[in-house]
């Protein structure tokens, strides 16, 4: 079988952005593989089902449902696809994933084993918090939340319920004072409930300026 489908509409993995730590190779590979699955002519099994299978596995990895066995599986499937698919399109997608698996091995491993994503792109790797010292209580963020995960009110510091939050990121871009940010493993201290703006007691600056500090003990 010969197939003339070209890779023109695929978004390649931006290795420079990955190297700069601002893009996630797993997320980009996932996007790429879904593009390939959507562009398949559908006649050849590795192109049709292989792209979809790999894209499904990659999606699982980006939401924290991957396992270390998945990397070997993706490697095996993409290896076969790179060899067998009859078009340039799926071939490029498979080879891009293979290259990334090799070049960004550590980042892939962090994703599957520890649900970590260096650039905090993948949903399983971060939580979303409103900085209680910056938030002005303007309420711009609340209506854009699709799942109503932000509590707050006029002149109250807003609080994100991360059990509800889907990590869509919509609120981050609308905050006029950039008070909303993603957090990796280390979570900032924020109030559990909305409190009046300005009432949050900022943590004392630790001795020596490092982050390990002892909280003052009442005398």
């Amino acid at each position: 079988m010969r197939c003339e489908t070209t890779a023109a509409n695929l978004t390649p993995i931006d290795v420079e952005a990955v190297a700069a730590g601002v893009a996630c190779p797993v997320a980009m590979a996932t996007t790429l593989m879904w593009q390939a699955a959507g562009a398949t002519c559908g006649r050849e099994v590795y192109c049709r089902e292989g792209t979809r299978q790999v894209a499904t596995i990659l999606t699982d990895i980006t939401v924290g449902k991957g396992s270390s066995a998945d990397l070997a599986l993706v490697d095996e499937l993409c290896g076969l696809m790179a060899d067998l698919v009859p078009c340039a399109m799926a071939g490029l997608a498979a080879r891009s994933v293979l290259d990334s698996l090799r070049d960004h091995a550590e980042e892939w491993d962090r994703h599957v084993r520890r649900s970590r994503c260096t650039s905090l792109t993948c949903a399983m790797s971060f939580t979303v918090h409103v900085d209680p010292t910056t938030c002005t209580g303007c309420e711009e963020c609340r209506p854009v939340c699709p799942v109503d995960a932000i509590a707050g009110g006029p002149d109250l510091v807003h609080v994100v319920d991360n059990d509800v939050c889907t990590r869509c990121g919509a609120c981050l871009s609308v905050c006029p004072v950039s008070a909303i940010a993603k957090a990796g493993p280390i979570k900032p201290k924020v109030p559990d409930e909305p409190i009046p703006v300005g009432s949050f007691a900022a943590a004392p600056v630790p001795a020596g300026g490092g982050m390990r500090r002892r909280r003052p003990r009442p005398s």
Partner: peptide, 13 residues
């Protein structure tokens, strides 16, 4: 190894 990596991620010295 996993616990140590986790500790480091959480800022444990």
């Amino acid at each position: 190894k996993a616990l140590t990596e986790q500790a480091e991620d959480l800022g444990v010295q």
